[in-house]
Amino acid sequence: MSQPGTVALTVEHNGSVQAIAFSPDSTRFASGGGDSLVRVRSVGTGAPLDAPSEGSVTGIDFSPDGAAFAVADFEQVFLRSGSTGKVIWQGPLDPGNSVNTVRFGPNGTLVAATDTSVAVLDGSTGAVTRRIPVDTPLIAGLDLSRDGTRIALAIDERHGGNHRQAGSARVLALATGAEIGRLTPENAVFAVAFSPDASLVLCCAADDTVRMFEAEGGTQLWPAEDQDEDQDEGEDEGEDEGGGRRVTAVHCLAFDPKGRWTVVGGADGFARVLEAESGTERGRAPTLDPGLPDPQFGAVTHVAFAPNGKAAASASIDNVVRVFNVDGRERYTVSTDEVLAMKFSPDGRWLGVGCFDRALVIDNGEPGHG
């Protein structure tokens, strides 16, 4: 076994790589982006597989059994065989609008989204079983609950004729399309993440806040309303009494798969691990050396939690990927090109990143120790 932090696989591309995925058994890695091929590679030994794409690939996901993979390819969704790459079915989701996301639910149902709508598709046939239009869009991000029954949407309302500074985080029941919860910060919402049981949602917004709320009903749990008011009056960003829940221009976040921790990345270059129950900061990476001048770090653009919840990863515009414990202590760093996508393998052994002109699979240690 190579040392953690070693690049185990490099997949060359002719353009940006903004979509990556691991198979459920963590043995295959798929990547795609601005060039004309989706590349599937074995992490170890195995024949490579290339599948043509018609436009810019923005999303890839393997089916729960690993036998197929879905691709968001410009205006269409493709389902391809995992062994041959041949098309099983294909079709436009919403003609004239690009597909931005594809995600499989645990029962094989496929969820796909454009800027303005969400669709639920039959995974075996591609038939659209439900369309959910989004009023006052743009959909900036989404998360599908672990059980596949709910979807959380990050909505940016700064687009359109009125150009207002507004947004919301919304929770929908996929079976009906009905909205069951909504939180409305002071500005656009960039990202959302469900807790493992889908009872809570974490969101970050353009008003420099990170908030936790109840999925059903939308009640904000933290920060408390009086802490929101204190922040509006100009308290020190990132160090408020509520435990560091105000993070400068946060754009990315993730929930620990076990439900205890969250991680958020800010423009100040720090990834902060917050306790999910209270929002109290547990640690941050990178750590600073006491007595030395504070260095300048690039803004954090991506964060992810390892499957065992003991470590998290961040990528920043200073072209460094960091993997660290929940207390912020770094396990290893890897120098990369600018990261456009990042994801741990299901078993935690690998960390995949998409960059300009290549995708990388980084060795994260023995399976289950991620």
Rank of each mutant, 00 (worst) to 15 (best):
274 L>K: 03
63 S>I: 03
269 G>Q: 00
321 V>K: 00
264 V>C: 05
76 Q>H: 11
35 D>Q: 01
154 A>N: 09
15 G>T: 08
7 V>R: 08
295 P>S: 11
16 S>G: 14
273 V>W: 00
347 D>F: 04
17 V>E: 05
216 E>N: 14
171 V>H: 07
155 I>H: 04
353 V>P: 02
316 S>V: 07
104 F>S: 00
345 S>R: 07
151 I>R: 15
301 T>W: 05
218 G>W: 14
270 F>E: 00
351 L>N: 02
348 G>L: 02
179 E>K: 07
90 Q>A: 11
148 G>D: 02
118 V>M: 07
16 S>M: 13
96 G>R: 02
345 S>T: 08
302 H>D: 11
309 G>C: 00
178 A>P: 01
345 S>H: 04
245 R>P: 00
264 V>H: 12
105 G>F: 06
233 E>S: 13
214 E>A: 14
294 D>A: 13
347 D>C: 03
319 N>F: 11
25 D>R: 02
294 D>G: 06
212 M>C: 13
315 A>V: 08
198 A>Y: 01
171 V>N: 10
124 S>D: 09
370 G>S: 07
213 F>C: 09
328 G>L: 09
211 R>F: 08
4 P>V: 07
58 T>C: 10
335 S>C: 08
113 A>N: 06
132 I>M: 12
225 E>M: 12
35 D>S: 05
362 I>F: 02
190 F>S: 13
79 L>I: 06
126 G>N: 04
60 I>R: 02
69 F>E: 01
121 L>K: 03
80 R>K: 13
142 L>R: 10
114 T>V: 06
207 D>S: 08
5 G>W: 04
256 D>C: 01
200 L>Q: 10
54 E>L: 12
137 P>Q: 14
277 E>H: 03
159 H>L: 11
348 G>R: 01
61 D>G: 10
370 G>K: 01
81 S>G: 12
119 A>L: 11
242 G>H: 08
33 G>V: 03
58 T>Q: 12
62 F>M: 06
188 A>N: 09
353 V>Q: 09
282 R>Q: 12
285 A>I: 04
49 L>E: 07
212 M>P: 03
21 A>W: 05
268 D>N: 12
316 S>Q: 11
328 G>D: 12
174 L>D: 09
148 G>C: 01
69 F>H: 07
190 F>N: 11
206 A>S: 14
